[in-house]
Simulated assay, not measured.
Amino acid sequence: MAATLFPDLVINDETIPHSVVAAEAQNHSAPRGKPGLAWRAAANAIAVRTLLLQDARRRTLTPEPQQVAPGKFETDEEALIRQVLEEAVQVTPPGEDELRAEWEKNPDRFRSPPLWEVSHILCGCDPRDEDARVKAEQRAIALAKLAIDTPRGFAALAAQESDCDSKKSGGTLGQLGPGDTVPEFEEAVRRLDEGEITAEPVLSRHGYHIIRLDAVARGQVLPYSAVRQKISDAIERAAWVRASRDYVQKLVAAAEISGADLKAG
């Protein structure tokens, strides 16, 4: 991507080097042959970051990096952006009436986690090995057809064919809750009705699964007192996002910007 094809990015008389925009552009996708889309997205992102850092300097903030992971800390720029947002964006916590009204809209949204009783047949393979994956898939398709044609024989089929230790118990995995299995497996379980077997094998990092949902216990509706804090946090997060967008738009409106289209539309 030739930098000379694109205009200079200037934010309030601060010129951003083309190399900085080019590096950021690597984080933005664009259709083949249209590098300008990635460049413009990068220019917009850097323009916002620059405006925030300029405001941090106006407020004479000193970076105080926080730990974001074991042994990993924010950069000075990341710390300044967090600090300026903390100082500039304030939201009022929702009141009790607002919280209860949100819960009463649809209490069914707030349930304890479901429990599933699940059995499966595993045709094990390393999905990265194409030959092994194809062989496992063909075997799994044949076993899935057998399982669906003779559902009462699922346990015997699992005991004979499964590559999982659960074959010793006819493929039964016992009770599972959200997060207990790999995401692909859980997603398939959530789509099944009680007693249903997956029509097509489900691929995970362990191989192909033929899954049967033996029973399901849907979570119970939780009382208001149990979900009050969760509702409050969600409303406050949404309010903070709106307020931060408004704050950035005020910075944009007051700024002299060229080489980015933050004011478009």
Score class of each variant (00 low, 15 high):
Phe154Val: 04
Glu130Thr: 06
Val189Arg: 08
Gln138Trp: 01
Ile148Tyr: 02
Tyr208Gln: 08
Gln175Asn: 10
Gln138Glu: 14
Ala243Ser: 11
Gln160Met: 09
Ala215Glu: 06
Ala215Phe: 02
Leu143Glu: 10
Arg133Val: 04
Val227Glu: 05
His209Phe: 07
Gly177Asn: 13
Glu187Ser: 14
Lys167His: 10
Val248Thr: 08
Asp149Lys: 10
Asp149Tyr: 03
Trp240Ser: 10
Arg237Cys: 03
Gln229Val: 10
Ala226Trp: 05
Ala239Ile: 00
Gly207Glu: 08
Leu143Cys: 11
Ile197Gln: 02
Ala140Glu: 12
Ala132Arg: 11
Leu222Val: 07
Ala132Trp: 03
Ser166Leu: 02
Ala239Glu: 14
Leu176Lys: 15
Glu236Trp: 00
Gly207Gln: 11
Pro183Tyr: 12
Ile141Thr: 13
Glu130Trp: 05
Ser204Met: 11
Gln229Asn: 12
Arg133Asp: 03
Asp163Phe: 04
Val134Trp: 07
Ser169Ile: 09
Val221Glu: 15
Gln229Tyr: 03
Arg242Ala: 12
Ile235Phe: 07
Pro223Thr: 14
Ala226His: 10
Gln160Asp: 09
Arg237Met: 06
Ser166Gly: 12
Phe154Lys: 09
Ala159Asn: 03
Gly153Asn: 09
Val227Lys: 12
Ile211Val: 01
Gly195Lys: 06
Asp131Asn: 10
Ala215Thr: 02
Arg242Asn: 11
Ala156Phe: 00
Gly170Leu: 06
Thr181Pro: 05
Arg212Asp: 06
Asp180Phe: 03
Leu157Asn: 04
Arg152Ala: 09
Arg218Ile: 05
Ala188Phe: 02
Leu222Lys: 14
Ser166Pro: 09
Asp180Met: 13
Tyr247Ile: 08
Leu176Gly: 11
Ile210Tyr: 01
Arg245Asp: 14
Lys168Pro: 00
Val227Gln: 12
Lys230Cys: 00
Ala144His: 03
Arg237Glu: 14
Leu192Ser: 08
Ser169Val: 14
Ala234Arg: 15
Thr172Asn: 14
Ile231Val: 09
His209Ile: 04
Val182Gln: 15
Glu194Ile: 09
Ser204Asn: 06
Glu196Ile: 00
Ser232His: 10
Glu186Tyr: 12
Thr198Arg: 01
Ala239Cys: 00
Ala243Gly: 11
Ala239Asp: 14
Ile211His: 04
Ile231Leu: 10
Ser232Arg: 14
Gly179Trp: 08
Lys167Arg: 15
Ala132Pro: 07
Ala239Gln: 15
Ala132His: 07
Arg218Phe: 01
Gly171Met: 08
Arg205Tyr: 02
Glu236Asp: 10
Lys168Ile: 04
Gly207Arg: 13
Arg237Gly: 05
Tyr224Met: 13
His209Gln: 01
Ala226Glu: 15
Phe185Trp: 13
Gln138His: 08
Gln160Val: 01
